[in-house]
Structures are given as C-alpha cells and as structure tokens.
Design a binder for these strands. Structure first.
Length: 201
DNA sequence: CTGACGATTCACT
DNA sequence: GTGAATCGTCAGC
C-alpha cells in the first residue's frame, strides 16, 4: 500500500481524478483506531463552472479549503446531520473537488459499527456519502487536513478496476443545479452492493 | 441578527 | 411514496 502522491491530486481534470479514485483505498486513523475501505463511488465537482459545486458561489469561510489547498480533505455538514467527505483537487486557486459517495469496508468494521450505532455490517454501513462520513469518523473540523497525513490518506494497493466495470451517470441530489445536474460526473463500480442509488448495468 | 435551505438518510404508510 | 430530523452557512438587513 502506498499513499497517492500530491501530484495525483494536482491533475487538471477533476473528472479523470474521480474516475481514477475508484478502487483506491481510503484510510483513517484518528484517536480511536484504524478504518479502511475501498472506494466504489465518486462524483466530480468542477468548481466555478459547475452550479452544483459549493465553490460556484465563491470563496467563503466554508469553501476556503477548496480554493486555497490541494490534496486535502473538504468535510462539511449537510442537512444538519451528515458529514460529507470530499477531496480538494487541481492547483491552488482552482476549487475542484471529488466527493466520496461510497466505500466497501476492508478494516475496522467493529469501529464503524460502533460509530454508526448499527449492529450488523450490511451494505448500508458505508453506502452513501452520509454513511461513509459517519463510519469513518469524519467531522467538519477535519476540513483542510492533508491527505499525506498518517491519520488520513488514500492509497493504491494494486487493485485495478477495468473500464467495463465502471458505470457513469449524472450526479445525485443536485437537481437544483439546472443543466449542470445532467453532467456525467458520477462514477461507480457496477454491481457493487455498496454503491448508492439505483443499480444500473 | 434573522431566516431559508441543503452534494441525505431512515422510518413509516 | 412521504416526511421528519437538525444545524451550519450565507445572504440580506
């Protein structure tokens, strides 16, 4: 397992990054133990050109991380209860991001059960961005954390996702974005039980 | 300071 | 299919 280097996050095309993150391993280890999971669903948010992106509205205290850092976590609270984990990409000054929507648990299942209050490790444990945030213990105070940290990073363990196993669709929950809601910026591994929404083949 | 609302989830009908 | 939970963020006064 090797951490993805800063150069990975600095690539220009956020959509390519979203595609490339499928199959990679998300790792966290705060104060209460390690958790690991394979990324099976992502969405790209193309900053200023994209009405669905938080950054579309400009640089605010919340979105500052997107504008001023790269290769860092962008964590925010949605609907007052869900911690959503994103990755800030591209060079500084360009507020692109990738949302991690779903993960398949690899390690630290007990910890995830404890955090989510679930008793059984079924597919709902890490399916959907709100659940991923909860299972991995993300909190908005972690926004701005480097992904080169020992407590938080994304790694490549050699697992590869063939092109034919990748599904592409419009993003979920962004209807308010008008035409931009139709952009094919969502990537997922076909047939994986942890992928949120309807399963398309 | 105030008010409207959201990159969602889950329980219930 | 419908609706509640729940609070930080941001625009507007």
């Amino acid at each position: 397992m090797k951490k993805l280097p800063p150069a990975f996050y600095e690539q220009e095309d956020v959509v390519q990054i979203a595609r490339a993150l499928l199959g990679k391993v998300l790792y966290t280890n705060w104060n209460d133990g390690p958790a690991k999971g394979r990324i099976v669903e992502t969405e790209a948010y193309a900053g200023l050109q994209d009405k669905a992106s938080h950054a579309y509205r400009g640089n605010t205290p919340r979105t500052q991380v997107l504008f001023e850092t790269t290769g860092t976590a962008y964590v925010y609270l949605c609907y007052g209860l869900h911690q959503m984990f994103n990755i800030a990409t591209n060079t500084k000054g360009i507020p692109h991001a990738v949302l991690i929507r779903a993960v398949a648990p690899l390690e630290g299942i007990e910890l995830m059960l404890q955090r989510t209050g679930k008793k059984m490790a079924d597919a709902s444990l890490t399916r959907g961005p709100g659940n991923v945030g909860k299972a991995f213990g993300f909190h908005r105070s972690q926004s701005g954390w480097s992904l080169q940290s020992n407590a938080l990073y994304i790694a490549d363990d050699g697992y590869e996702v063939p092109d034919e196993a990748i599904g592409i669709s419009p993003r979920i929950g962004v209807d308010y974005a008008g035409a931009d809601a139709l952009l094919p910026y969502r990537f997922y591994i076909k047939g994986n039980p942890y992928v949120s929404g309807k399963v398309k083949l």
